[in-house]
Lab assay of single mutants.
Amino acid sequence: MSGNGNAAATAEENSPKMRVIRVGTRKSQLARIQTDSVVATLKASYPGLQFEIIAMSTTGDKILDTALSKIGEKSLFTKELEHALEKNEVDLVVHSLKDLPTVLPPGFTIGAICKRENPHDAVVFHPKFVGKTLETLPEKSVVGTSSLRRAAQLQRKFPHLEFRSIRGNLNTRLRKLDEQQEFSAIILATAGLQRMGWHNRVGQILHPEECMYAVGQGALGVEVRAKDQDILDLVGVLHDPETLLRCIAERAFLRHLEGGCSVPVAVHTAMKDGQLYLTGGVWSLDGSDSIQETMQATIHVPAQHEDGPEDDPQLVGITARNIPRGPQLAAQNLGISLANLLLSKGAKNILDVARQLNDAH
């Protein structure tokens, strides 16, 4: 009898209710805020589980004197976190989706994509230029951005401005803007500013005609071990179906173009009346040469937790077992079709030249 009692006690200790789920994140304040929001949602869904947040620095956090596009290494903000995932030191990792490459290392998958916040870019102005827009900034004003995508589009749109690289986390960039006289304004992701509670610093939100956004911008991705079915089931509740389908289309477009950090590629997606609209573009580094096109596809946005595919093969690095396969494939095909259209119009040449120029500098 006593033996059975011990077995029952052991089973209770090993039951999922007692389990601590370890969540990996970057150390920056924004990353911690984003991770806290994901953990809060998981806690609400699984009140019996405990969650421990483990923060670590990544290569991208450490190399702050070089433009991201020049470092010449993929997975700048993800490699150390993936290493911890691989060694079973954490069970899942919360990322900004735009930091996750469209091809993940073997053994990993994006197990959830959370509801997207505003994906557009924002302009934050130096205190002396508050009330201005990019259009009304004085001639030769210097605007800071760490992104080739932003610089290429904005140089084309605002030729009277000069664009220079600015690195560091959000706090560091804002301090550089406010305390030094080098920059009249800087460009940042609206979602990051909003998550930090800095709505009052948003001086201008850039519309798609001015600057399309990065693939996955404004959404959070939760990376897990691809074979860890328990954790895949656990994080599945975080999937937002519309965000998922938009981001599958965007990531398929980028992957098929073979774009990345070192080339200016941008997108804009919208879901309306059962249609998914995808606009994508590529630019030369100075913005003088560009190709942009829009395509659409009829896609039914499923309700969360309709029964999805059981075999769960990944699409552009994403596993969404609780979302039907048909809409996911339709979104992926839309991204591939748009990429093929741009490639047929000469996108590869623009991107190759951009890559060579970026590598040469």
Score class of each variant (00 low, 15 high):
Arg355Leu: 09
Leu85Gln: 06
Met271Phe: 13
Thr35Gly: 10
Glu117Asn: 06
Leu238Ser: 04
Glu82Cys: 06
Leu154Gln: 09
Gln180His: 14
Leu134Lys: 02
Ile205Gly: 13
Leu177Trp: 01
Trp198Asp: 08
Ser141Val: 09
Glu82Val: 06
Val103Trp: 14
Leu100Arg: 00
Glu293Asp: 14
Arg156Gly: 08
Lys87His: 08
Val235Pro: 01
Ala152Ile: 11
Glu182Lys: 07
Pro159Ser: 08
Pro101Cys: 02
Gln204Thr: 01
Ala67Arg: 14
Met271Leu: 13
Glu80Tyr: 03
His126Gln: 13
Cys211Tyr: 09
Arg321Asn: 06
Arg201Gly: 08
Ile53Trp: 05
Ile299Glu: 11
Glu210Val: 12
Thr269Asn: 06
Leu49Val: 14
Ser45Pro: 09
Val301Cys: 07
Lys74Met: 03
Glu82Phe: 15
Lys176Phe: 13
Ile205Ala: 08
Arg19Thr: 10
Thr66Asn: 10
Glu82Asp: 10
Gly197Met: 02
Gly346His: 05
Gly131Ser: 11
Leu254Ala: 02
Pro302Met: 14
Arg173Asn: 03
Asn340Trp: 15
Leu342Tyr: 13
Ile21His: 07
Asn340Lys: 13
Arg173Thr: 01
Lys345Tyr: 14
Arg325Asn: 05
Lys176Gly: 09
Ala31Thr: 00
Ile166Gly: 04
Leu81Gln: 02
Gly280Phe: 02
Leu49Pro: 08
Val23Ser: 02
Asn171Val: 09
Asp228Arg: 13
Leu177Asp: 03
Ala214Lys: 03
Val90Ile: 11
Thr41Phe: 08
Lys157Ile: 10
Ala270Ile: 07
Thr319Glu: 04
Phe163Thr: 14
Ile187Pro: 01
Pro47Asn: 13
Asp91Leu: 03
Leu278Thr: 07
Arg116Ala: 08
Glu162Cys: 15
Leu193Trp: 00
Val265Gln: 02
Asp99Glu: 06
Leu232Phe: 12
Ile186Asp: 04
Ser337Leu: 15
His120Thr: 14
Lys79Val: 09
Pro106Lys: 13
Phe253Gln: 00
Met56Cys: 04
Ala360Leu: 06
Ala189His: 00
Arg149Trp: 02
Lys98Cys: 05
Ser147Trp: 09
Thr59Asp: 14
Ile231Cys: 03
Asn118Ser: 14
Ala40Lys: 13
Gln217Arg: 02
Thr133Met: 12
Pro324Gly: 06
Pro241Cys: 14
Arg156Ser: 13
Ala189Gln: 03
Asp352Gln: 11
Asp99Val: 03
Arg201Met: 02
Asp311Ser: 05
Arg175Gly: 10
Gly48Ala: 13
Ala354Val: 05
Ala55Asn: 08
Val316Ala: 11
Leu170Ile: 10
Val353Gln: 15
Thr319Ser: 11
Ala270Arg: 13
Gly60Phe: 00
Gly72Ile: 13
Gln356Tyr: 05
Ala55Ser: 12
His300Arg: 05
Met271Ile: 15
Gln194Ala: 13
Ala249Val: 07
Gly216Thr: 02
Leu334Phe: 09
Ala44Leu: 10
Trp283Arg: 08
Trp283Met: 01
Ile71Cys: 09
His126Cys: 13
Arg116Glu: 05
Pro106Thr: 13
Glu73Phe: 06
His120Ile: 06
Ser284Trp: 05
Ala270Gly: 06
Glu80His: 07
Leu276Trp: 02
Glu135Pro: 11
Ile166Asn: 08
Ile299Val: 13
His199Val: 14
Arg22Leu: 14
Lys348Phe: 11
Gly131Phe: 10
Leu161Pro: 02
Val93Ser: 05
Ser146Val: 08
Arg201Val: 10
Gly24Val: 08
Pro138Asn: 11
Lys74Ala: 10
Lys70Ala: 12
Gly203Trp: 14
Ser288Thr: 10
Arg156Asn: 12
Pro138Thr: 11
Leu104Val: 09
Asp312Leu: 05
Gln29Ala: 12
Ala67Gln: 08
Arg201Trp: 09
Glu258Ala: 03
Arg321Ser: 12
Pro159Met: 08
Arg246Met: 09
Thr133Trp: 09
His120Ala: 05
Glu86Thr: 10
Ile110His: 04
Phe125Tyr: 15
Glu86Leu: 11
Gly281Ser: 15
Ile323Pro: 02
Pro127Val: 07
Gly317Phe: 04
Arg32Ile: 14
Arg246Trp: 05
Leu68Val: 12
Pro138His: 10
Ile318Val: 15
Ala330Met: 01
Pro309Gly: 15
Asp230Tyr: 06
Pro119Glu: 06
Gly107Tyr: 02
Gly111Cys: 03
Val301Gly: 13
Asp65His: 12
Asp230Cys: 03
Val224His: 00
Gly280Lys: 08
His305Tyr: 14
Pro313Cys: 06
Glu258Ser: 07
Lys140Tyr: 09
Ile186Val: 11
Arg225Glu: 07
His160Met: 14
Leu244Ser: 14
Leu134Gly: 04
Ile291Asn: 09
Arg156Leu: 10
Tyr277Met: 11
Ala112Thr: 09
Lys128Glu: 15
Arg246Pro: 06
Met196Ser: 05
Arg22Lys: 13
Val130Gly: 06
Leu64Gln: 08
Lys98Arg: 02
Leu81Asn: 02
Phe129Leu: 12
Val237His: 00
Gly236Val: 08
Asn88Asp: 05
Leu68Met: 13
Ala55Glu: 15
Gly197Asn: 04
Thr66Ser: 14
Ala297Pro: 00
Asn88Ser: 11
Asp230Thr: 00
Pro309Asn: 15
Arg150His: 05
Val94Ala: 01
Ala330Leu: 13
Lys227Ala: 15
Thr269Val: 00
Gln204Val: 12
Val90Ser: 07
Ser290His: 00
Lys272Ser: 14
Leu206Asn: 02
Leu334Gln: 01
Arg164Met: 12
Leu351Met: 14
Val202Leu: 12
Gly308Asn: 13
Gly48Ser: 12
Tyr46Thr: 09
His305Met: 07
His256Arg: 11
Leu42Gly: 03
Gly308Phe: 03
Leu245Arg: 03
Glu306Met: 04
Glu135His: 04
Val282Gly: 07
Ala360Cys: 00
Cys247Leu: 05
Ala330Cys: 15
Met271Gln: 08
Ala249Asp: 04
Asp359Lys: 05
Leu254Phe: 02
Glu80Thr: 09
Phe77Pro: 02
Arg167Lys: 06
Ala303Arg: 13
Leu68Asp: 09
Phe129Asn: 01
Ser288Lys: 07
His239Lys: 06
Leu148Lys: 14
Ala297Val: 08
Val23Pro: 00
Val316Ile: 10
Asn118Pro: 10
Asp61Ala: 00
Leu334Cys: 13
Asp178Trp: 06
Leu49Cys: 00
Asp99Trp: 02
His95Lys: 04
Ser57Asn: 08
Asp289Asn: 05
Gly326Gln: 01
Pro138Met: 12
Gly221Asp: 02
Gly144Ser: 06
Val237Trp: 03
Met212Ile: 15
Gln314Met: 01
Ala112Asp: 04
Ala189Ile: 02
